[in-house]
Every structure is written in structure tokens, then in C-alpha cells.
Amino acid sequence: MSVTAAHRLRLVIAEDAVLLREGLRRVLTDAGLEVAGVAGDAAQLLQLVAAQRPGVVLADIRMPPTQTTEGLEAAVEIRRRWPGTAVIVLSQHVETEHLFELLAGDARGIGYVLKERVADIAQFTGAIRRVAAGESVIDPQVVARLVTRPRQDGPLQTLTERELAVLALMAEGRSNQAIAAQLFMSPKTVETHVGNMFAKLGLLPAAEDHRRVLAVLTYLRG
């Protein structure tokens, strides 16, 4: 992939497992991203971000010293101190609690991705680029759990299979264009589906993608 230096994405990586950290650094550098630094824990990460002011931060949720949610807290802190910085957290959890903590502020430029996604390098770098561009990226498996959840008869039950697929992609943070491409529809059709669905679910139509992500996820979770 050839990207001019001016457009090269600068990112920092926070991951306590050395092998994985170095692997990620290599893969992402090979993919044409500029890895401005790596950190082994949250404190290092915050120092690194302060010094480097990267465009994107890639952080493991669980890091030393407590191995619980340091990465998440650091991500929230980074968003608070440097609001323009995009953040992707790597999680081992399919559970949504952390996701919503992360989304509580502004969903723009936020990614919540299961750790094993790093295996598909092309997809993974794609996700990083999307987040860097201000989109939201929510792991499909997490979204799938919310969409396929059994629920009482309600508006969701009235959606067609096609509409549900669109809904899931919306929840993953995809734009109408991306949804159209993935589902082989015209952008116009996608727009119609989205409009219908929002009307059925009683959601206010949201112009910006990252706003509708939160709206849809919240709806699905409730």
C-alpha cells in the first residue's frame, strides 16, 4: 500500500504482551501506518500520547497493574484530554458493558474490536483507518449478540431480514455507502431501509453515522 508521508496515519500501541505488541507494530508498519511508539501499560500510554499526539491510539483493555480495565480508562482519559484522538480498544469480551462505557462520551472516532481481529490484517487496518477518519467501528460479533438476542414482541420483530442486516451494519458503524456495497444494494435503497427502520423503531433519524450508532446500539441493548 503506498501512502504519502503527509497522509500517513500516526498511531501508538498499548499492549502488555510483548510478542503481540511487537507483532502489531510490525504488521501495522508493513501496512503503511506510522507507529509512533508503543506502551506496556496505561501510564506509559498517557505519557506517549502527550508526547507524540498521535492520530490513533490502539489499546488493549486489560493491562498491568490490575489487569482489569486500565486500557479502557486510559482511552476515556485520552478522549477527554485530546478530544480529536481516535481510539480503538482491543477487548477479549463480547460483553457490552465496556463498549457503552467507551461510547458514553462521543462515538466519533471510537473503535471496540475483539482482539482476535488482528489476524485479518487488511480488515484490521481498514478498521483503524475508518476510526481515524472519525467513523465508529463496533465488532460484528458484539453487534450480532445484541441483534440476535431474543426479545419480546416489538417493533424489532417486524423488521425484514434485509432490514435487520442493515441494522446490524449500522450498529457496527458502517456508513450507508459501505452498507450498500456490502449488501449489494444501491445507496438509495439503503437510505429507504434506514428511514423505514427508524420510523418503525421510533428512533429519531440521525444524520451523522456515529450518532446513529449509539442510537441503534442503545435501542438494541435496552
Binding site: L20, L24, V27, R62, Q67, V118, A119
Partner: peptide
């Protein structure tokens, strides 16, 4: 925690390595 820090982490690293090999 041991599973997470040990086997899971290694498997993730393995999948990453496999991804690299594949590319």
C-alpha cells in the same frame, strides 16, 4: 486471569503471526 494472560494472549499472537504469514 492466567487463561487470559497466558493461553488467550498467545493464541492472539499466533493468529496475528498466521495473518502475517498468510499475507
Amino acid at each position: 486471569r492466567d487463561l487470559h494472560d497466558g493461553a488467550q494472549q498467545r493464541l492472539v499472537t499466533l493468529t496475528l503471526a498466521l495473518g502475517m504469514a498468510r499475507s
